[in-house]
Nucleic acid binder design. Structure first.
Lengths: 160, 160
DNA sequence: TATTGTTATACTCTATAACTATA
DNA sequence: TATAGTTATAGAGTATAACAATA
């Protein structure tokens, strides 16, 4: 038989929602022993790779609103993984860096998430996983263009 | 330069979260004129394709908790798109069917979501979109196996 | 006047326990 | 006793307005 959700299975968004819900549940379980969630893990990685980063910039990179980032950084600072230091050039802003503990936890968490990722993509060949990354990034570009009419870099929206 | 989130870009989950957030925002905007959200649209489609469906079964199919489904069906019933009727065989249960209006709105919404889907996957060839569906469904299978050790149908988890 | 970080708030989505009515 | 649907509730995640300090 066809399956009760066969109409929905035609849509990428439906397959993606189901896959993502399972990934998110599993990755949060993987990160829990480190005291991290998906979003605090993401912030920790970006700060580690970009020392001195300002909060506004981090919010842009992760596409989250500034007010929501405050709580995420409070969380990371409380766990002694990240520090906020006043910028000397612009005393409104904070420069973000990871602590020694933060760098260590980040390394271990990245390794754990890599294992999680391998589990989630098992049964797919390397080329299939690369094609998946490519497709997801193309969709991200298309979605940005839809939400921001000034971005015509890839031209997927309706022609003039 | 490498991009501040290059560590995260290695993970399927990160690319998928970003792509899905954009898809979800766009599809909800597409569905708003129909008075639908992603989840009420999904429920409407499944009910239309499976007349007489019970609420418990629908919750299983869409992988949502029964209490949350109640509000979704209240929403659809209030809009006169779906009706709940007491089952004669089991008077605890409700049988779900779409109204004539529900069938009409479902048709139009499916067409609108098909156009949304084409927009989101533009720049990808048909074979790439098919490969995307395949990869997402494999991840869903892998994720189910992780969350339910009794499901070894595809064997992606650690061997005994 | 504009920007950085913050507070407060609200709205959605999701998850769990406990209730009712039926089986 | 077990199940179907419901209620109440609590926890995330997300979005906006308004404020203080600084530019």
């Amino acid at each position: 038989m066809a399956g009760a959700d066969s109409t929905l299975r035609r849509f990428v968004g439906y397959d993606m929602k189901r896959a993502f819900n399972l990934i998110q549940g599993d990755v949060n379980a993987v990160l829990k022993p480190f005291g991290l969630r998906m979003v605090t893990f993401s912030a920790l990685c970006v700060i580690r790779d970009t020392p001195g980063l300002k909060q506004s910039r981090l919010a842009q990179i992760l596409m989250i609103e500034r007010p929501n980032l405050v709580l995420i950084l409070d969380d990371l600072e409380r766990a002694d993984l990240v520090v906020r230091e006043r910028s000397r050039e612009d005393r409104r802003a904070f420069e973000l860096t990871v602590t020694a503990l933060g760098a260590q936890v980040c390394n271990q968490a990245v390794a754990a998430v890599e294992r999680h990722d391998a589990r989630m993509t098992s049964g797919l060949e390397g080329a299939e996983v690369q094609a998946l990354h490519k497709a997801l990034r193309q969709i991200e570009l298309n979605g940005r263009s839809v939400n921001d009419p000034s971005d015509r870099s890839t031209g997927p929206v309706s022609p003039p």
